[in-house]
Nucleic acid binder design. Structure first.
Lengths: 202, 202, 202, 202
DNA sequence: CATGAATGAGAGTTCATTCAT
DNA sequence: GATGAATGAACTCTCATTCAT
C-alpha cells in the first residue's frame, strides 16, 4: 500500500505541476487538481490538504532535478573552456526565459508573494545563491586560465544572476523578445571576455 | 456634485492603494475595499465595477508622481556631477527595495501575471524603458565630462535596470538585506567610475 | 406647477410604455424607466413609487384610445356591409397579432400573471367583453340583412374572440405566420357568410 | 450512486415543479428551489445551474405524461362514439382550465415570453399541433360514422384548440367561471353534432 | 483507501428605495 | 420640486472541506 500510495502521490504532484505551470499559483483550486488528476475530491485530501501543500511538493520535486544547474559543475571538472560553459549556461537560461508559459516561474513568484518563508528555507533564495556560487566559480576558472578579465568574480556572478532574474520577471510581466535576451547576454559576455583584438593591440 | 464625486473616487483609490499594498492584487476583493473605505457594497459599484478597474486607477495615479524618476532629469540640467545624480537615483531605488511592504510592486507583478497586456500599453514596460533612457543619458553625461568610463552607455543602463528589477523581485519573494543592495550598487558604480587612485597609479 | 407636473407625468408614462413594450413587465426596473426618461432616480419617485404603478397608468392610457374598438361601432351606424366591417375588424386584429414586438400584449399578460385583480376591475376582461359585445352586434346586424347565417350571434362572437386570444398568446410564445392568421380568419368568415353558390344551388 | 443521484434529481424536479406552479417562471430563484427542496445552496448546483435548466427539465417531465393527450387516441381505436371521446377530451381540458393554480400554464407562458425558442423546438407549439391533429382525426371519425357534420375537420380542430388556448390565457389573467367554459364547450359541440331532434323535425 | 454528494461561507453584482442638498 | 449618491437586502455562483458509504 505504501508503495502504491507513494506512486499515487507522485502522480498527483506531477499532474498538479502542469496545472500550476498553466494557471499560476493563486488561480489553482483543489477542484482544478482533482479534475486534472481524474480522482475524487476526497481522494486528493487523503494525500494533501491544500494547494499550498501540493505546491510545496511540486517545488521540492522540481529542486531535485534542477539543483545541478544544468551540468555546469561537471563540465567545469572536464577542463572545458569557461567561456563555452558560461555561454552554455546562459543559453539554457535563455531558453527558459523565452518559454515563459512552460515553467513554474510565475507560480513560484506568486507563491512567495503569498507566503513569507524564512530566508534560510526559501527555495528561491537557495537556488539563486547556488547559481551565483557556480557562476562565480566558473568566472574564477575563466580568469585563471586567461579567458576572462574580472576583478570581482563573485560580484560579476551576482550581477549576472540579478540581470537574469530581472529578465525573468520582465518575461513574465511584459514578455521579452529573443533580441532582448541576446543583447543582455552579449553585454554580460563582453564585460568578461578579453577580446583578441585588444590583446593584440597591447 | 461632480466635485464631490471626484473627491470620493480619489478617496477610494487612495484607500484601495493601501489595501493593494498590503494584500497584493489577487487577494483583494471588492469587500476588502468596501470595508477599508467604510462605504456600502453598492456604493463602491457607483465608482468602480471590479478590483481590476480600481487597480488600474491606482496604478495610473501612481504613475503621475513617479514618471519623472525622482527628479533625475532636472538635476541633469543643473550641471550636477553625474556620479552624484546616479548615486542619488540608486539611493532612491534602494529605499523602495527595502520597504517592500510599502509599495505596489507585488500587486503590480501579480496584476501583470494575471492580465496579459499588449506590450506597448504595458505600464511596467513603459516605466522600465523610461528609466533606462534616463539612466543612459546620465551615464553618457558622465562619460562626456570624464567621470565615467563606459563604451556602451545604454547597455550599461539596461544592465543596471535589470539588476534593480532582479533585486526587486528578490526583495518581494525572499527579502533582501541592506547589505545586499549596497553591494550591488557598489558593484554598479565601480563598473562605471574612473577611480582617481587607479588613474594616479597608472 | 400642477400643469407642468401633469405634463411630466404624462411624459414618463409615454416613455415607460416603450420600455414595457420592449421588455415586458417583470423585466422592467425603475432604473430602466429612469434611464429611458433621462430623469433622476428620485425624480421618478415623485410621481410613481413602483413599476406596477407606472404600468397601471400605461395600461389606463392605452384604454382611452382603444376603447372604441377601432371605429367598428361608428361604421355599424353607417349602414356598411356587416361582412365588410367584420373583415376590417379582423384585419386590424391581424395586424396586431403579427407585430407582436410592438404592443403591450406580453407586458399585460405578465402583469396579470403577477397581480390577481378582481374580475370586475380587470382591464383585459373588460376589453374582451366589450369586443364580444360589439362583434356580437355586428353579427346580428349581418344576420338581419341576410349577409350572415348564425343561430347564436353572441356565441359566435365569443368564439371569434377566444380564437383571437388564442392566436395572440400563440403569437407571443411561439410566433405565428401570416398564413396561420389568414387561415383562421377565413375559417371564421366561412362559418358566418352565406355563400352565393350554395344559395344558388338550393 | 448514479441511482441515488437520479432520484435526487427527480426529487428536485418534482419539488421545483410545485414552486413554478405557485410562483410562475420569472419569480422563481435558485434560493426558492433550494428552500423548497430543503437542500443547500451549493447542493442544487450539483444538479442544475440555473432556473431555466430546471424549468426545462420540469417541462420535459411534464411532456412524458401529457403527450398522449389523455388517452384519446386509444379510445379512437376502440370504436367509441366520437362525440363521447370529444366530450371527454373537452372535459379534461375544462378541468385544467379551472384549476389554474395547479398547473404549469403560467410558468410556461412566462418562460416562452422570456426565451424565444426556434419554432420547431417549441414545446408549446408541438403540443398544440399534436392536439390539433388528434382532435382533427377525432372529428373525421365522427363525420365518417354520421355523428358529426363538418366540412373542414382540421379547420374545426384548429378552431377548437385556439378557443381552448384563448380560454387558457383568460383563465390565467382574469379567471374564468365554470359556466364560461361550459358555454364554449357547448358552442363547439353544437357546431359539430347533427342533432336528432332537428333532423326529425325537418 | 476511495468516492463524490453535500454543506455553507463568502465573493460578485444589481436594484428599490431613501435622503441630504 | 429635483437630484443622484448612498444604502443594504437579495440573488447568483464557486469552492474548500467534510463525511457517510
Amino acid at each position: 500500500m505504501s508503495e502504491k500510495s507513494e506512486q499515487k502521490k507522485q502522480f498527483i504532484v506531477d499532474t498538479a505541476r502542469e496545472v500550476f505551470v498553466e494557471k499560476g499559483y493563486k488561480n489553482v483550486t483543489m477542484k482544478d487538481i482533482v479534475d486534472a488528476c481524474g480522482i475524487s475530491r476526497g481522494g486528493l485530501y487523503l494525500y494533501f490538504s491544500s494547494t499550498q501543500e501540493i505546491f510545496l511538493e511540486v517545488l521540492g520535486a522540481e529542486g531535485k532535478g534542477a539543483e545541478d544547474t544544468g551540468g555546469v559543475e561537471e563540465l567545469l571538472g572536464k577542463n572545458a573552456f569557461a567561456s563555452d560553459i558560461l555561454a552554455l549556461f546562459l543559453k539554457e537560461q535563455k531558453k527558459e526565459l523565452l518559454h515563459r508559459k512552460n515553467n513554474l516561474t510565475m507560480a513560484s513568484y506568486e507563491y512567495f508573494f503569498a507566503h513569507k518563508v524564512p530566508r534560510k528555507d526559501n527555495l528561491l533564495k537557495k537556488r539563486f545563491d547556488t547559481s551565483v556560487r557556480i557562476v562565480g566559480r566558473l568566472i574564477e576558472a575563466g580568469v585563471e586560465n586567461g579567458e576572462f578579465y574580472c576583478e570581482d568574480a563573485m560580484g560579476a556572478a551576482r550581477n549576472i544572476m540579478y540581470v537574469l532574474e530581472g529578465l525573468k520577471i520582465a518575461s513574465q510581466t511584459r514578455g521579452i523578445t529573443e533580441e532582448t535576451v541576446d543583447r543582455e547576454i552579449l553585454y554580460i559576455m563582453q564585460g568578461l571576455i578579453i577580446e583578441n583584438d585588444e590583446v593584440g593591440d597591447g
